[in-house]
Amino acid sequence: MPSLLLRLLAATAGTYLLAMAWVTAFARAWPGPPADGVLLGTMTSFLAGMLAILWIFATGSAWRASAGLALLTAALWLIALLAGAP
């Protein structure tokens, strides 16, 4: 049960944080016009979220799934930070 709860938490709040980080990374790091980066990042964030949810439930261990999700989110934040202000 705790493992299912962890997966559910990762698939909801965790995936939303991932989508936010995804959008932020696109908005900051997109080389073209800023409006394009925002549009592209937001449009693709739903696909990223869908893949993340599938992966969260496909991975054998709920802890590994959550850790992987957190790592990916952190990596996207890092990209956003490195790219600096838009």
Binding site: V23, T24, G37, V38, G41, M43, S45
Partner: peptide, 17 residues
């Protein structure tokens, strides 16, 4: 999802604009 996407994820606009 596309027509309402900025209701769900407005962060990108607020960052860039």
């Amino acid at each position: 999802l596309v027509p309402l996407m900025f209701l769900y994820l407005p962060q990108g606009i607020d960052l860039a604009f």
